[in-house]
């Protein structure tokens, strides 16, 4: 399978199974479009190039095919039995230390922090038991991850600090290495908390949507005021204090700002170097939801953003955009490429009461409660369903060119829209495909612009 497309004056072909990316001239690009479906005579008659040029292009395409970098066979499908046969162990937990929030963001998947339940804080005892559960179920894995999440985790920061201290003591006993992250809306950030985060958190996610009017339309305080003026100076200070690495400013775009490249560039203009602005995932009945009819505009905006990134890089104003980051030279192992985040198997979320869920997005949906940290995983049929979910089990992924860069999409989004973790959220898929195209084009530009 080969995906061919044009962007920014590049003719690009992605060989899906090998991952090879080719940049073609117009002759080769047009010949490639007919290469598998037409005879040589038919290609001569269909295209307005000289026979000599067409023959050259055909020979080059044949050479790539022989080398295994065009129309290559799927090398992963045969490995499924080996991958599926492994005993899953837990390596990461998302600790919901706070089911409460000091903002009232309209689009919050967590129901403004409450997760459709009563507002609550995780106790130190519950958090401690969750860390014990993680260590106990992590098998031989040394690197373990804990995300402090909410709601707003800074509303329960004393417990966060105690849990970090406990984990540091336990990791020595069990030969483990904890990696911590925290996600915050920034309202409660202080210099003291900033110092603590810098000393203890490997990654920090700072929630802000971009331009002031965009952010303040969605991310309001309890009294109805905007949050931008409170959080922006704090976030700039925190990002600088971390040397502009190991953090992300993370925003959400909605139907209200389909010109979201303006928000990305605003964050870049404010000095941030690690930026993610992502599409809202919301029921179609919500006024701010992104609908099928919005996709053309979203696609144009992603392409416009890619061009802006190129021009800024020329002027040494570059920044990283989370969804355009693609590693064509390395990449993860096969099992990760085909199954993604490991939700429900190696990554679990823990609610304030100790309940276990496949990931943070499933918390609050009792159908997806798989057990608790005290008695362990009880709903094995559900975890098996997650374990066996990958790009080879999803019909929608089989012919998709982006499958090895997307790993089948978010399982929670799939369930929320299609009531099955095996049926990806189609609007999300379409945006993902456009982002992969943009990311590959950026790589092509990086490699060939100077030639």
């Amino acid at each position: 399978m080969v995906h061919r497309y044009k962007m920014n004056n590049y003719n690009i072909a992605l060989d899906i199974n090998s991952g090879a990316v080719h940049v073609l001239d117009d002759v080769a690009f047009d010949v490639l479009g007919l290469y598998k479906s037409s005879t040589r005579e038919e290609i001569f008659n269909s295209l307005a190039y000289s026979q000599n040029e067409i023959v050259e292009a055909i020979n080059e395409l044949k050479g790539l095919e022989s080398a295994g970098t065009l129309f290559s066979e799927d090398a992963y499908a045969g490995l499924l039995d080996e991958i599926n046969g492994r005993e899953p162990v837990v390596k990461a937990i998302c600790l919901h230390v706070t089911h409460d929030c000091n903002l009232t963001c309209k689009y919050c998947f967590a129901d403004e922090g409450g997760y459709k339940g009563s507002r609550s804080l995780m106790s130190f005892e519950t958090g401690k038991a969750a860390l014990d559960f993680l260590i106990r179920n992590s098998g031989g894995r040394r690197n373990l991850e804990v995300d402090f999440f909410g709601g707003e985790p800074l509303m329960n920061f004393d417990v966060v600090k105690k849990l970090v201290e406990y984990a540091r003591a336990e990791e020595k006993k069990h030969n483990k290495n904890f990696r911590f992250t925290v996600t915050t809306n920034g309202l409660l950030l202080t210099e003291e908390i900033q110092s603590y985060i810098n000393e203890n958190m490997h990654n920090v996610v700072l929630s802000i949507d971009g331009r002031k009017e965009i952010n303040d339309n969605m991310r309001k305080t309890k009294t109805g005021g905007g949050s931008y003026d409170i959080i922006m100076p704090k976030f700039k200070k925190l990002a600088d204090s971390r040397g502009q690495t190991n953090y992300y400013v993370r925003g959400t775009f909605t139907k209200g700002n389909l010109d979201f490249s303006g928000d990305v560039l605003h964050l870049a203009d404010e000095g941030f170097k690690q930026i993610s602005v992502e599409p809202v995932v919301a029921d179609a009945s919500e006024a701010y939801a992104i609908q099928v009819q919005d996709l053309d505009m979203v696609f144009k905006e992603y392409e416009a953003l890619a061009l802006k990134i190129i021009s800024r890089k020329k002027n040494n104003q570059d920044f990283n955009f989370f969804h355009f980051m693609l590693d064509l030279e390395g990449g993860p192992c096969v099992s990760k490429r085909i199954a993604g985040c490991g939700a429900g198997t190696e990554y679990l979320a823990v609610a304030p009461n100790g309940g276990l869920y496949p990931c943070h997005q499933f918390v609050g949906n009792e159908e997806f409660k798989i057990g608790d940290i005290y008695s362990g995983i009880k709903n094995h049929s559900l975890t098996e369903e997650f374990e066996k979910c990958n790009v080879y089990t999803k019909e929608a992924c089989k012919e998709c060119f982006a499958k090895f860069y997307c790993s089948g999409g978010c399982l929670s989004n799939a369930y929320n829209f299609n009531k099955s973790i095996q049926k990806p959220y189609e609007i999300g898929c379409q945006m993902q495909r456009k982002r992969v195209e943009c990311a590959i084009m950026l790589k092509a530009h990086e490699a060939f612009a100077s030639l």
Partner: peptide, 23 residues
């Protein structure tokens, strides 16, 4: 080659980390 340039030299079919893929 005259008509085609290949971008990457390490490929999928020639194949403890952080939780995520495109890592």
């Amino acid at each position: 080659m005259k008509h085609i340039k290949t971008l990457n030299t390490k490929l999928l079919n020639n194949t403890e980390c952080q939780t995520s893929v495109a890592q």
